[in-house]
């Protein structure tokens, strides 16, 4: 176990290093002078020189990279081209909004997907199975932003039940937070739910077809008992991975939904940074998200190894 954890840690470290390189190179790929481009109409020689120096752009490339790396390790991701504020600060203050949306969406997805997936596997071929499969096919194929627009039209426009967009911090007013998070979380959550439903269903089916389950059934245990005692536990182990991976990708991947619902999280920050050509902020957001993604994956692998001892054997 310890060796496995160590190996995964090392691997993640190497990948993270690669990630910093990619993020660093983003700035180099900007055609022309990134600071000049970023400043646009706000160009003035002093700001320009200051930002260039601060971004280290007057150094050779290799020096720049190691400098970037060294500072990133101490939590210094540079300053925003737009506001001059430290990137780390800007990125971190957006984390709570993204976190609360992602977690709510995943909880919502699990609430839908577990009953649906399990039922559709147990009652394979039944009406509910068909419904579950139509649902999951719909969820995987529908553009979430389109569903979001339709949701706003219906729930905020026609029915007037929910605010069309906006954000209130959970700590500020839980009630208002809930009413604001409902639509975006449901939109993201539906897509996630459809993915989960599929996995749960096929994972259940796989376990249900295994010998020991058949034996148990043959021994006369009632289906429900079998399902609860044996199948669920074994079938749900792989599902943990999928849930975690979904959560990880939601932490950084909900750009369109955050933009659509004016949710001031990392996704919207990324989008705003793109609009404003604020490359350091873009770099910082992307780096943070990728690091989070790696971290969650690492944790999942370790957790998984604990849940399923077979893993460590490989």
């Amino acid at each position: 176990m310890a060796r496995f954890v160590l190996r995964r840690l090392l691997q993640s470290g190497v990948v993270l290093l690669g990630v910093t390189l990619v993020v660093f190179l983003l700035l180099q790929l900007v055609p022309g002078d990134p600071v000049r481009v970023a400043l646009g109409t706000r160009f003035d020689p002093q700001t320009y020189e200051a930002l260039r120096a601060r971004a280290g752009l007057d150094q050779p490339l290799v020096v720049q990279y190691f400098d970037y790396l060294r500072r990133a390790l101490t939590g210094d991701l540079g300053v925003s081209f737009r506001s001059g504020r430290p990137v780390t600060e800007i990125v971190l203050e957006r984390l709570p909004a993204t976190l609360s949306l992602a977690v709510t969406a995943v909880l919502f997805a699990m609430l839908v997907a577990f009953p649906l997936g399990i039922l559709s596997a147990i009652r394979s071929g039944s009406l509910i199975d068909h419904a579950a499969r139509v649902f999951s096919q719909f969820g995987v194929s529908v553009p979430d932003f389109w569903m979001g627009i339709m949701g706003i039209l219906l729930f905020a426009g026609v029915l007037g039940w929910l605010p069309p967009s906006g954000y209130v911090a959970l700590t500020e007013d839980p009630g208002k937070w809930a009413s604001h998070v409902a639509l975006p979380a449901a939109t993201v959550g539906l897509v996630t739910a459809s993915i989960l439903t599929r996995f749960i269903r096929s994972s259940m089916l796989e376990v249900l077809s295994e010998d020991y389950v058949r034996t148990a059934e043959a021994k006369g245990l009632r289906t429900r008992v079998v399902v609860l005692r044996h199948v669920l536990r074994n079938a749900l182990i792989p599902v943990v991975t999928v849930v975690a991976v979904q959560l990880a990708s939601l932490l950084g991947g909900v750009i369109v939904i955050e933009v659509l619902f004016a949710w001031p999280g990392i996704g919207r920050l990324t989008y705003d940074a793109v609009q404003a050509r604020d490359y350091p902020v873009l770099q910082g957001a992307v780096l943070l998200v990728a690091a989070l993604f790696l971290l969650v994956n690492l944790l999942v692998d370790i957790l998984y190894a604990r849940l399923d001892p077979r893993i460590t054997v490989k």
């Binding site: 906006g166 209130v168 500020e172 004016a262 949710w263």
Partner: peptide
Amino acid sequence: RLAGATLALTLAVVAGCST
């Protein structure tokens, strides 16, 4: 740089929440 304040402009920025 008046970003087309009155036009159904971009999704440029934030949201209407407010307490």
